[in-house]
């Protein structure tokens, strides 16, 4: 049987709130969340539309851990009811606005977690969260040398010495 996470009154909404969703993480944790909170996710919205079409509701299985999922839910809860330009498909393409202050604190996590969050946000199609994570990562490596970039993001240099010193690479990148 799947493990049921402990649920207190704060995580299970009371009567009168929006419908509930059951999200199941890759580590088999069940997380109950209001549908309204997750409406920022295009992926979830499409799933819900599917439920409505078939009049049958299912658990939504997600390919990331409950730890990451909880972070995403925290983000969605914070911006519940807010209009975010980046999430609007009809709005102008996202500009180079700085990372919002709250997002900055929210994304103050280790590199591994940051990458997991952006992957989850991409999977769930939450554009604003993808944008904030991308800006946070870009801020980490902007202005850094190639070597520093490798170190910061844990990337291995797989160029052969010949490739690394080839004239074309030096001239035009």
């Amino acid at each position: 049987m799947p493990t049921i996470v402990s649920v207190d009154d704060s995580t299970v909404p009371g009567e009168g709130s929006s419908r509930l969703l059951l999200l199941v993480s890759s580590d088999n944790k069940h997380i109950v969340v209001e549908e309204d909170i997750m409406s920022r996710s295009r992926f979830i919205s499409k799933q819900v539309e599917g439920f409505e079409a078939t009049s049958q509701r299912h658990a939504i299985l997600l390919p990331f851990s409950s730890f990451v999922l909880n972070k995403v839910i925290e983000y969605c809860s914070h911006y519940r009811g807010y209009y975010l330009l980046e999430d609007d498909p009809d709005a102008a393409p996202p500009g180079r606005s700085p990372v919002r202050e709250w997002d900055q604190e929210f994304l103050d996590v280790d590199r591994n977690m940051l990458l997991r969050i952006i992957k989850a946000a991409h999977y769930l199609e939450i554009k604003s969260l993808v944008g904030s994570c991308a800006r946070a990562i870009a801020d980490m490596i902007r202005g850094k040398t190639t070597e520093e970039m490798r170190e910061i993001l844990g990337v291995e240099n797989d160029f052969t010495p010949e490739e690394e010193h080839s004239p074309s690479s030096k001239c035009t990148g």
């Binding site: 202005g143 490798r150 990337v155 797989d158 160029f159 990148g173």
Partner: peptide, 11 residues
């Protein structure tokens, strides 16, 4: 910065 990025790894 873009040129630096292209020198990090082949991917």
């Amino acid at each position: 910065p873009l040129l630096a990025v292209t020198h990090v790894c082949s991917h």
